[in-house]
C-alpha cells in the first residue's frame, strides 16, 4: 500500500504499530539501480545466467581439462575488455597464452602469484581496485586444504615456520569483496571450491575431439572439440538444461 506522507498517522505510537506489522515500508527508489551484467561471449550461457556474469558476485566454472573452462574464461575476458572494461587475470599456474585471442591485452592485468594463497590475496587486491572482471585461474592448482588427520593419529611436531594459510574462509572474504566493490569474480577450477559463496556454478563436461583428415596422413589437423556446459546452481535462476558448444581451434 502506498500512502502520501500527509496521510500517515500523526500519532507516533500508531506509526510504530504499522511499522511493526510490516504495513508501512520504504518505497523502492524510482529508478532502481541495476548494474549491467558482463556477457560471457557465449549467448546461450548468458541467457542461462540471466544476462551474463553479474557484477558484485562470485561465479565458478568447474570442469576437467579439455572441457573448455579456459576458453570460457578467455571469452569472458575478451568480451569485457572489448567493451572497454579493465580486467585482471590471476594466473598462479602461469598458463596464459597471449597469442591473439580477441582479448584487448591493453586492458588486461596479468598477475602470476607463486602459490594459491597468494593468488587469493591477489584477487582481493584486484577486486578492491575495482576491476570490472577478476578471473582467478585455478585450472592447474588446488586451493583446498589437505584433509584433516583423523583423531588419535600421533603426529611428529616440528618447530618450523608454518606455510601460509588461505584463512578460515577465503571464498566468503572474496565474495564480500566482490559485492562491496562491484566487480565480477570468475573462478576456474577442476573441482568446486567456493561452495555456497558462488552466486552461480557452471559445470562443464568434455566431448569428442574433431579431427580433419585421415590418421597418419599428411594434412591432418585438430579442428576443435565439443563440450557441454550447464548452469548447475544459480541464486536467482533455475538450473539450465545442458548447453552444447563447439570449441574451434584457431590455427597457430
Amino acid at each position: 500500500m502506498t500512502l502520501p506522507a500527509r496521510r500517515l498517522p500523526k500519532d507516533l505510537h500508531a506509526l510504530e504499530e504499522l511499522l511493526r506489522d510490516g504495513q508501512v515500508r520504504r518505497a523502492p527508489a524510482l529508478s532502481p539501480r541495476k548494474e549491467r551484467a558482463l556477457p560471457t561471449g557465449f549467448a546461450a550461457l548468458d541467457a542461462a545466467l540471466g544476462g551474463g556474469l553479474a557484477r558484485g558476485q562470485l561465479h565458478e566454472i568447474v570442469g576437467p581439462p579439455g572441457a573448455g573452462g579456459t576458453a570460457l574464461v578467455r571469452a569472458a575476458l575478451a568480451s569485457a575488455t572489448q567493451a572497454g572494461e579493465n580486467c585482471a587475470l590471476i594466473d598462479p599456474g602461469d598458463a596464459f597464452d597471449p597469442a591473439p585471442c580477441g582479448i584487448d591485452l591493453d586492458r588486461l592485468l596479468w598477475v602470476r602469484p607463486r602459490d594459491p594463497v597468494q593468488a587469493l590475496r591477489t584477487a582481493e587486491v584486484a577486486l578492491e581496485a575495482r576491476f570490472a572482471l577478476v578471473a582467478l585461474d585455478f585450472g592447474d592448482v588446488s586451493v583446498l586444504p589437505p584433509p584433516r588427520q583423523p583423531r588419535g593419529v600421533i603426529q611428529v611436531v616440528r618447530f618450523e615456520k608454518k606455510p601460509p594459510s588461505p584463512g578460515a574462509s577465503p571464498w566468503a572474504r572474496l565474495a564480500r569483496r566482490a559485492e562491496k566493490h562491484g566487480g565480477a569474480l570468475l573462478v576456474l577450477a577442476r573441482a568446486a571450491q567456493a561452495g555456497t559463496f558462488a552466486a552461480a556454478t557452471i559445470e562443464l563436461e568434455r566431448g569428442r575431439a574433431q579431427w580433419e583428415g585421415r590418421q597418419g596422413a599428411p594434412g591432418r589437423f585438430l579442428r576443435g572439440t565439443n563440450a557441454v556446459g550447464a548452469v548447475a546452481r544459480h541464486k536467482r535462476m533455475p538450473p539450465s538444461p545442458p548447453l552444447p558448444f563447439h570449441l574451434k581451434l584457431e590455427p597457430t
Partner: peptide, 26 residues
C-alpha cells in the same frame, strides 16, 4: 607495463566465437 587506455565513449558489443584455448606449461 600496464597502462590501460581510457574507456571508449560508446562500447561496441563484441562478436566472439568460442575457440579452444591452450594452457601453456612453463
Amino acid at each position: 607495463k600496464f597502462a590501460p587506455p581510457p574507456p571508449p565513449r560508446i562500447a561496441v558489443p563484441a562478436h566472439l566465437e568460442l575457440s579452444l584455448a591452450a594452457r601453456a606449461l612453463r
